Simulated scan of single mutants.
Amino acid sequence: MKRNDLNDGDGTALPTNAARLGTRLRLARQTRGLTLKALADEAHCSESLLSKIENGKASPSLPMLHKLVKVLGTNIGWMFEEADGEEGIVFRAGTRPLISLDPLRRGEGISLERIIPYSPGHLLQCNIHHVEEDGESAGPIEHVGEEVGYVIAGEIELIVGDEVFRLNPGDAFVFKSELPHHYRNVGKGRASIFWVNTPPTF
């Protein structure tokens, strides 16, 4: 899995976004008057790892990021917020970043291609989840909202609560985000899922 790369659409790697995430995390922590130790204790993670994340030297797993933003009273969308595109309406092909939330840990193999920017101005969050062969999401995850997805390519196993579903291209799904959920690529080659959820926490 590549380090936390942004893709410019022609395969050229752009600078990583780990520094931006770390800066936002530190700002949110300091705004709430929390020390590194206090935030680490409440989020059940190590102080040293949290320090590395804030300094752009490590990236959190998705479950850890959910814990951090819950403690900080914010959302994942704000952590990655960027400027809107043309009039905040059109977002051109080749300009969408490809985000890996946990680039330093092997085995997950998942990147999120932003369809629209992470922004508090949007009621929906939309990404294409690219899942490498044998890749799987860290989880299970639970949060407020609703999830809708459409499998573009590959074969996915979706686990929602106690139910397991095998999904192929053209299959779609919807479920409440409060249900524990995660997924993995059970086919050959990369799988891709067009994924929309609300509110913007993913």
Rank of each mutant, 00 (worst) to 15 (best):
M1S: 14
D5Y: 15
N7M: 10
D10C: 12
P15Y: 15
T16K: 08
N17V: 12
A18L: 13
R20S: 13
L21W: 02
R24E: 12
L25T: 00
L25H: 03
L27H: 04
T31N: 05
R32P: 00
L34T: 00
T35L: 03
L36W: 02
K37P: 01
A40K: 05
E42A: 14
A43P: 05
S46K: 12
E47N: 10
E47Y: 06
L49W: 15
K52S: 11
I53C: 05
G56R: 08
A58M: 09
S59C: 05
S61E: 05
P63N: 09
P63A: 08
H66W: 00
K67T: 03
V69R: 01
V69G: 01
L72Q: 02
T74Q: 01
W78G: 03
E82F: 08
E82H: 09
A83C: 09
A83H: 12
E87G: 15
G88L: 10
V90P: 06
F91N: 00
A93D: 12
T95I: 07
T95H: 10
R96T: 09
P97Y: 14
L98R: 14
I99H: 13
L101T: 14
P103M: 03
R106E: 14
E108A: 10
E108D: 07
G109T: 02
I110S: 03
S111P: 01
E113T: 05
E113R: 15
E113I: 08
I115M: 12
I116Q: 04
P117F: 09
P117A: 13
G121R: 09
G121A: 08
H122S: 12
H122Y: 10
L124W: 01
Q125H: 05
Q125C: 01
E132Y: 00
E132I: 00
E136W: 09
E136N: 08
A138G: 15
V144F: 04
V151Q: 07
V151I: 15
I152F: 03
A153Y: 04
A153V: 07
G154H: 02
E157F: 09
E157C: 12
L158P: 08
G161Q: 07
V164I: 14
R166F: 08
L167M: 14
N168R: 11
G170C: 07
G170F: 07
D171F: 02
V174M: 05
K176L: 06
S177H: 00
S177C: 04
E178H: 06
L179P: 00
L179F: 11
H181T: 10
H182L: 14
H182C: 13
R184C: 09
R184F: 06
G187D: 11
K188F: 06
K188M: 08
G189P: 10
G189K: 11
R190W: 05
R190F: 05
S192N: 11
V196C: 13
T198D: 03
T198C: 03
T201D: 09
T201N: 13
